[in-house]
Nucleic acid binder design. Structure first.
Length: 264
DNA sequence: AAGAATGTTATGTA
DNA sequence: CTACATAACATTCT
C-alpha cells in the first residue's frame, strides 16, 4: 500500500513535486474528462491553492485543472508501475517515477480564467498566501451577526479553515464559539488572524495539525501523536485544564470547545 | 451496521 | 440581504 494523502488543509502541498514534468493525465471514470484531455501530455507548471481549492496549471493551457478534495478526497502516490485504477479513481497523473491517483474529490475539472476570477472574488483571504489581505476578512466579519464559530467556517471570510482548525483557533484565542462575529474587537481579530497563519504554517511544514506549544507539549510538538497534538478538537477533555470539552452543532458541524478556557 | 467525518452547494423558509 | 436548516454528493472508518 502506498501512503494515501488525506483531506487535510495541507494536502495541496503533497503533489507539488509533480510540477515541472510532462504528464499523462487521464480520467478513468470520466469525471474530469475535459480537464484530463486538455492537460494530457503537457508540462505541469504550477500547483497552487487558494483556501481549499487547488489549481493545476499546465503549460499553454488557458484553463486550469481545479481540484477540491472535499471531505473524502485523497491523493494516492504509487511507485511505478502503478496498479489499475480503482472504480472510484477520478483522475490519474502519470510521468516520471510515480503515478498520482485522485479519489473521492468534490471537484475535479476545468476552470476557466473567468470562473476562477469569480471564485477568488468570493473567497476570503487565505492565511497561507503571501498575498493575503486580512483587511478583507475583517471587513466581512464586521457585518456578520453569526457566531464566530460559524464565521470561521465561512470561506468568504477566511479561506482555508475547516472544522478542526476553527475549534483550535477559537481555543487559542480563548473565544467562546457563540460570540457574535461582529462583536470581536479589532485587537482580538488581529490575534485570531495571526493564530490562523501560525497554525496553518505549522501544518504546512509538517503535514500535521499541531496546535500545542512546545512548552505545553514538554517535548518537540512534532513528536506528539493523535489527539495529543490538539487542545480540544475531537477530545473528551481539554488538554490544558483537563476539564470536559463541550460539543455543539454550529454551522452544521460539530464544534469542540472548552467552557473553562474559552470565556472571551 | 448506522453514523460520523479536517467539505460545499442548492433550495426552501423566516 | 442575512441567517439557518436540510438534503445532496463524495467515501472511509469505527
Amino acid at each position: 500500500m502506498p501512503e494515501g494523502h488525506t483531506i487535510h488543509r495541507h494536502a495541496r502541498l503533497q503533489n507539488a513535486d509533480m510540477a515541472g514534468r510532462r504528464l499523462g493525465v487521464t480520467s478513468p471514470q470520466g469525471w474530469a474528462g475535459d480537464a484530463a484531455a486538455e492537460a494530457d501530455g503537457r508540462v505541469l507548471e504550477l500547483v497552487e491553492a487558494y483556501g481549499k481549492h487547488l489549481f493545476y496549471r499546465f503549460e499553454g493551457a488557458p484553463a486550469a485543472l481545479q481540484v477540491h478534495l472535499g471531505l473524502f478526497g485523497k491523493f494516492w502516490r504509487w511507485d511505478d508501475p502503478a496498479p489499475e485504477p480503482r472504480e472510484t479513481t477520478r483522475l490519474r497523473f502519470t510521468g516520471g517515477e510515480h503515478t498520482l491517483d485522485l479519489t473521492g474529490a468534490m471537484i475535479s475539472g476545468l476552470i476557466t480564467p473567468e470562473e476562477e476570477t469569480k471564485l477568488l472574488d468570493r473567497l476570503g483571504p487565505d492565511p497561507l498566501r503571501s498575498d493575503a489581505d486580512p483587511e478583507k476578512a475583517w471587513e466581512r466579519l464586521k457585518r456578520k451577526r453569526i457566531p464566530i464559530g460559524a464565521a470561521l467556517l465561512d470561506q468568504s471570510v477566511i479561506a482555508g479553515l475547516g472544522n478542526a482548525f476553527r475549534a483550535e483557533v477559537l481555543f487559542a484565542c480563548g473565544l467562546r464559539p457563540t460570540k457574535p462575529a461582529n462583536k470581536l474587537t479589532r485587537k482580538k481579530f488581529d490575534e485570531l488572524w495571526a493564530t490562523t497563519v501560525d497554525f496553518l504554517k505549522r501544518g504546512e511544514g509538517s503535514g500535521k495539525m499541531v496546535t500545542v506549544s512546545r512548552e505545553e507539549a514538554g517535548m518537540p510538538p512534532s513528536r506528539l501523536t493523535g489527539s495529543d497534538r490538539v487542545q480540544v478538537y475531537r477530545r473528551e477533555t481539554c488538554r490544558r485544564c483537563g476539564g470536559p470539552t463541550r460539543t455543539a452543532k454550529i454551522a452544521g458541524r460539530t464544534l469542540y470547545s472548552c467552557p473553562v478556557c474559552q470565556r472571551g
